[in-house]
Nucleic acid binder design. Structure first.
Length: 578
RNA sequence: CGGGCUGUGGCGCAGUUGGUAGCGCACAUGACUGGGGGUCAUGGGGCCGCUGGUUCAAGUCCAGUCAGCCCGACCA
């Protein structure tokens, strides 16, 4: 491709609404343009990168024995009614009606669609296992799209689903996908960390996320440097923190006037003490399969409740804080004065952190009153002690007991064991060797394609622009004639043709611009190998080769150029693939 | 959903106590220049987000509305 014909509107100045580096650089280098909030167009260079990412994914999926499909974006409502997700997905799912007023949705994911195909196509255990996948558009009406292509509303996703006869088969499929993910992220030049994630009702090690460490990441990752434990903060479990009860003398409860003092911060200031002396009492409504109830959750004042862990512990499908009126009804006091003492009307559970607390401060369940010197056993009872806290840096590792660290990460891939949820709900049945009906067990494996590309930029750039890993760079080589004229033009043209013939993808900047301008653009674009054809070196029959990432420069005889470039390309590739 | 900020040529922005819109970049033409976004000259391009109001007069003041961005979304 020649720059004179290529549409890549580079920007010298930074667009004002780009908040992170990848967004800025993708905009500036003319890879993408915004059409509306959360909706981006890929221009030719951006598309090439996306397609390379897709091809890397495809290659590994196929290697793992997965087969490619292409599903519609628009899906009929009935499919979603079968699993109850039409309601469950809520506003995240874009709902539309056709001219006949028939309901459709823009697919935010495709479990139902794939399961319906398998249900019709596969009838016998002999046809299993299968792994099916597609790379295609998804639509999610995000509350707040942001960071460019990192969290868009319309985005490209690779989603794969495995169907197996039994747990053992599922494990094998899961392992195959895991290995494929490890390979493909590496091939794309992305450094990822694998962490344990929330797996809802499935439990165990059935859910892992591939995270790209980055300060702009939307997930908090908890890691243990000592033993390698790694988990999403939604899933991180807490080591048994010094739960030994201190030998404090148990003091009698006293009621204290605390006019208008509600939040932990206000209480800390009021009592002139620290947050860990308080027991927070939070009232939740939780729904299980067939019932609904209220629960008071106690936790030490300096900690936060992890609602996902709470829901899992309670066996709840849904959980939410109750409204102010309900608080008043349950506790007898307005918001801010709830406490466990004489809270007779509902179940009380406590985070493990509360176990060792003595002479604590809590709400008195009366307006403008708190209690001091509250003690478990003496003043109130707890039904269950659970691990429901949000794990933080400095907490203890559940595996080895050492102190945990944390960092932020971008989720680029997620693999997890789905179980029978969809096959059951959708009556996807195969016959086993005894002719008995059997639900296949599913696994689900996703990759955010746009997001992975953005993460590559996030991870590979400098102050001048992008530094593409050669495996997903829009082109391998950018060829810059200082002036596209005379001998420089001749040499450039013949190199251009020769390289393409040898399978090297070349972008030639044949524009009549000044050299400095072209160099700046080249740095922005970040094509890994830059060849400069200039008068000075040409006088010695040489061309210049410069690596974008390291700045390494060498001059090579024209006759040796193609060979040398080929070998540099190989070197760059094997440096990534290892 | 709540709070904050911003809407003025393609992009980045200025526009004072209200008086009929400007700068840089980009674009077009020409000349010079030619290894890190060059110089000069000339030129084209704006319903000042939208609607309504105040006023002799509104980019500017008021009300509403739409859009975008940022932060937060109940932890008692």
């Amino acid at each position: 491709m020649k720059c004179s014909r290529l549409i890549f509107p580079t920007l010298k100045e930074t667009p004002s609404d780009a908040a992170i580096e990848s967004h800025r650089l993708m905009l500036r280098s003319g890879l993408i343009r915004k059409l509306a909030s959360g909706l981006y167009s890929y221009l030719p260079l951006g598309l090439r990168v996306i397609q390379k990412m897709e091809n890397i994914i495809k290659t590994e999926m196929d290697k793992a024995g997965a087969q490619e499909f292409r599903m519609p974006l628009l899906l009929p409502r009935e499919l979603w009614d079968e699993t109850g997700r039409y309601e469950l997905m809520g506003d995240l799912m874009m709902k539309v009606a056709d001219r006949g007023n028939k309901d459709f949705v823009l697919g935010p994911t495709h479990e139902e669609a794939f399961t319906s195909i398998i249900r019709d196509a596969i009838k016998s255990y002999k046809e299993l296992p299968v792994i099916v996948y597609q790379i295609g558009k998804k639509f999610r009406d995000e509350i707040r799209p942001r960071f460019g292509v990192m969290r868009g509303r319309e985005f490209i996703m690779k989603d794969a689903y495995s169907f197996d006869m039994d747990e053992e088969g599922l494990n094998a499929s899961y392992q195959a996908m895991k290995q494929a993910y490890i390979n493909l992220f590496k091939a794309a030049g992305l450094k990822t960390v694998r962490v344990g994630a929330d797996s809802g009702a499935m439990g165990g090690s059935g859910s892992e996320e591939f995270m790209v460490p980055s300060h702009i990441g939307e997930n908090e990752i908890i890691v243990c440097e000592a033993c390698g434990y790694a988990a999403n903060d939604e899933a991180a479990v807490c080591g048994q923190n010094n739960h030994e009860k201190k030998d404090n003398e148990i003091l009698p409860v006293e009621e204290v006037d605390t006019p208008d003092v509600r939040s932990i911060d206000e209480l800390v200031a009021f009592f002139k003490t620290t947050a860990d002396k308080f027991i927070k009492t939070i009232i939740y409504r939780y729904m299980t399969q067939d019932s609904e109830d209220i629960v008071a959750v106690l936790i030490r004042g300096d900690l936060e409740v992890n609602e996902i862990k709470l829901a899992n512990n309670l066996g709840a499908v849904n959980i939410a804080l109750v409204d102010d009126q309900t608080i008043k009804k349950v506790t007898g006091a307005p918001v801010g004065f709830a406490g466990p003492v004489d809270l007779g009307k509902c179940r009380i559970v406590a985070d493990d952190s509360v176990k060792s607390m003595t002479n604590s401060i809590t709400g008195a369940n009366k307006k403008d009153k708190h209690l001091i010197n509250v003690n478990i056993g003496t003043d109130f009872e707890v039904t269950d002690f659970l691990d429901v806290r949000m794990v933080k840096k400095g907490d203890l590792c559940p595996e080895c007991g050492k102190s945990l660290d944390s960092f932020r990460g971008i989720e680029v891939g997620h693999i997890f064991k789905l179980g029978l949820k969809y096959t059951k709900a959708m009556h996807c049945i195969v016959l086993d060797e005894n002719g008995k009906e059997h639900y296949p067990i599913m696994g689900c494996y996703g990759i955010g394609v746009d997001r992975s590309v953005a993460a590559v930029v996030e991870q590979n750039h400098d102050e001048n622009g992008i530094l593409w890993p050669i495996t997903i760079a829009p082109y391998h080589v950018e060829l810059i004639p200082i002036k596209y004229d005379g001998r420089m033009k001749e040499v450039s043209d013949s190199l251009y043709t020769e390289l393409w013939n040898k399978g090297v993808e070349v972008l030639m900047d044949d524009r009549p611009s000044r050299p400095g301008f072209k160099f700046k653009d080249a740095d922005l674009l970040g094509i890994p190998i830059r060849i400069t054809i200039g008068e000075k070196s040409l006088a010695e029959n040489k061309i210049e080769i410069k690596l974008r990432a390291t700045g390494e420069t060498e001059f090579v005889e024209i006759s040796e150029a193609v060979k040398r470039i080929l070998s540099i390309k190989d070197d760059l590739e094997s440096a990534i693939l290892g």
